[in-house]
Design a binder for these strands. Structure first.
Lengths: 150, 150
DNA sequence: TATTGTTATACTCTATAACTATA
DNA sequence: TATAGTTATAGAGTATAACAATA
């Protein structure tokens, strides 16, 4: 029992170490593209949803509309997105990729795939399936743990 | 080949999803203790090292000495640490836990163990070993990937 | 009235640069 | 000269609250 607990803890610490390294890697990669994590996160959501109102981005990113204003301001200044008029609601602005923004997203998607391949490509199909299964279980238990408090 | 790449990508996305949930969980737990992630990180390092100069904390946390000043100011204001005179170097201050700080760290360590147990306790020894082995491999490859750019 | 996005203000974390006190 | 830590200043990200324009 005592030995098992200790092992749990060691594996958890390994996960946290991986989290730290992943954050470092992402910050480096994004920095090389002239992006901050927050701005990249917004662009990633924008890519998934197509042109959307800032309202929707605020909900997706779980930040306030005010914070979205600041991020979009910065992305407009960088020439990656524009605010286009909403066809049916004159209060809203549709955040939309510029050509440069779209090609940057292609670049980001490439990087994403390359990292995934570098990390998981060497695993056998069985290893990968086992790992993915364990991840799913852990994620499920983490969601339950979060629900306990949130 | 195409199918394998897609699978790599899906597993990587699962890892990123877990990272996001872990961050949420930690921010919630720390917030309940009145701590920000940065302040908690500093306290965690302080616990590992015992009373140290801010210089050492700056190196451990990979932030500037100026940033450490701000974090320690906040922790002093919260009554969790004090700046004690260094026995042999009058320029330096030894950051030291108060009694309240120490008991908070006991609380944090408990939470840490509880989460580790909630996430990995249900795994069999074999599953856990396989998962830990895969984690080690992935972490190793990520380090190599980071070295490529850094 | 309710919603979209803004301006105004403030807090946290971080950085660089200049400075003080000590080594 | 070099080091430990600070003050001064700045930028990014976030929040709340009050407001404008529109629905």
């Amino acid at each position: 029992m005592m030995r098992k607990l200790h092992h749990d803890d060691a594996v958890f610490d390994s996960v946290l170490e991986l989290v730290i390294l992943l954050n470092e890697d992402m910050e480096q990669g994004l920095g090389a593209l002239g992006l901050t994590p927050s701005r990249a996160h917004l662009l990633w959501e924008l890519r998934r949803r197509g042109p959307v109102a800032q309202q929707a981005l605020a909900a997706a990113l779980k930040i306030t509309p005010r914070a979205v204003t600041g991020l979009v301001d910065a992305l407009v200044a960088s020439g990656l997105v524009t605010r286009e008029p909403h066809p049916s609601d004159r209060r809203a602005a549709l955040v939309t990729f510029t050509a440069r923004g779209e090609s940057l997203m292609v670049h980001m998607a490439h990087d994403h795939e390359a990292i995934a391949h570098a990390l998981f490509g060497p695993m056998s199909k069985d290893e990968l399936d086992a790992f993915a299964g364990a991840l799913t279980d852990v994620t499920h238990r983490l969601r339950a743990h979060l629900a306990t408090r949130g």
